[in-house]
Amino acid sequence: MSTNKRPQVVVLGGGTGMPVLLRGLKNYPIDLSAIVTVADDGGSSGRLRTEMAIPAPGDIRNVIAALSDAEPMLLELFQHRFKNGNGLSGHSMGNLLLAALTSMKGDFFTGIKEISRVLNVKGKIYPIANQNMYLHAEMEDGTLVSGESNIPKQEKRIKRVFLEPDPVQPLPEAVEAIKQADIVVIAPGSLYTSTLPNIIIPEISDALRNTDGKVTYVCNVMTQHGETDGYTAGDHVQAIHNHIGQGCVHSIIVHNKPIEQDMRKVYAQEQAEPVVYDNERIREMEVEVIEEDIIDHSQPMLRHDTAKIASLLYKMI
């Protein structure tokens, strides 16, 4: 890496884990890009996507909010969700703005760029694709399930996920960002419905395989009912390998402190438990294990600590 250019950092993912990483990273002297899944089909996002034939805006909206340096009031407005009233109930203001800009500009990605400018976003935001895409899963028992929000509800073991249309055309800028990156971070999140939908697109997995940058996966701290019941960290890595082959992910970041008993009880109600870190097995898969206390201990729920994880990632560069 030449000394005069800022390090290129790419974060790949969707769901709740991604904004946490981005909020911390945006304050570092880096060129930050976020590549965001658009396969969501639940709630406001799903309704807009069906009615307006646009990619799902929900995860993009949360990433814009995380990277924005706008007035707090403006961000509050952007994240506002309408409670009652027939047509608007459940919709979030940001999703509606993204839908409006897409229809004004005729293009989802251009809409994102416009709203990023208005909300003073630090970094670049790329939807993984500029078109609508649908996630499907094949379960271990052979049944097929369609729709990102339906997959965890089956409460079955997932064998693999795949996308339609096949192939999805990823945004060329997203592919290029991965190729140019000094580090690519696969964000924590729902493994099969937030993380894998991005990386199973062939051009994306090729870019991960061919980038000169390091690719690191921030592992989930808890299992997720309906997706990763009983999964160890090694099982998470194995699922990635099963979908895109070995050699795409160089390291995994795991939490190395025990989870408090009362926190376990809260999660047990959701049938979630701490992910077991079978580090030996992961090393046998030729993936480096990076252990660190990465949890925000002040939160009522288990969340990755924005500052700790950003600092760790910055050191890795």
Rank of each mutant, 00 (worst) to 15 (best):
S68H: 03
Q269L: 15
V11A: 12
I204A: 00
A129Y: 00
Q131W: 02
I253H: 04
P29L: 06
I282R: 06
I64W: 02
Y277E: 12
M133F: 15
N132D: 14
E260F: 09
K83W: 15
K105E: 06
E280M: 14
H241M: 14
Y267D: 07
I115F: 02
P57M: 06
S149V: 06
I64E: 03
Q261G: 13
I199D: 02
I201E: 07
N27D: 10
S2W: 05
E284R: 12
Q131Y: 04
R23G: 15
A53D: 11
L313E: 01
L144M: 13
G24L: 02
P57Q: 08
P172V: 03
A34C: 14
R6F: 05
Q180P: 08
N130F: 02
G90Q: 13
A65N: 09
E286L: 07
I259N: 05
L25P: 09
F109K: 13
M104R: 15
E291P: 10
S146V: 11
K26I: 02
G142E: 04
E284D: 10
A187D: 01
H136L: 08
N4P: 14
V254H: 02
I240K: 02
E273K: 13
Y192Q: 09
K257L: 09
Q224K: 09
V276T: 14
Q79F: 04
M73D: 10
S146P: 11
Y28S: 13
A66E: 06
V289S: 12
K83D: 13
P152T: 01
M316K: 11
L32V: 02
L312V: 02
I112V: 10
V175L: 05
R160A: 09
T16C: 06
L88N: 09
H80K: 10
L12Y: 00
I178M: 00
Q299M: 07
S298C: 14
I158L: 04
S298Y: 04
D166P: 14
M133A: 13
N242F: 08
P7W: 00
R160P: 11
Q131V: 08
S92T: 09
R209Q: 12
D41H: 01
L32P: 00
Y126G: 07
M133I: 11
I183H: 02
L75I: 14
G13S: 10
D212P: 13
V36R: 00
V275G: 10
L67M: 15
S103M: 15
R157V: 12
N198F: 02
E286K: 12
R281Y: 12
S149D: 14
D141L: 08
D59Y: 00
Q299G: 06
P170Y: 03
E284I: 14
I115G: 11
L67S: 08
H236G: 11
G85K: 01
L97G: 05
V11H: 03
M18I: 01
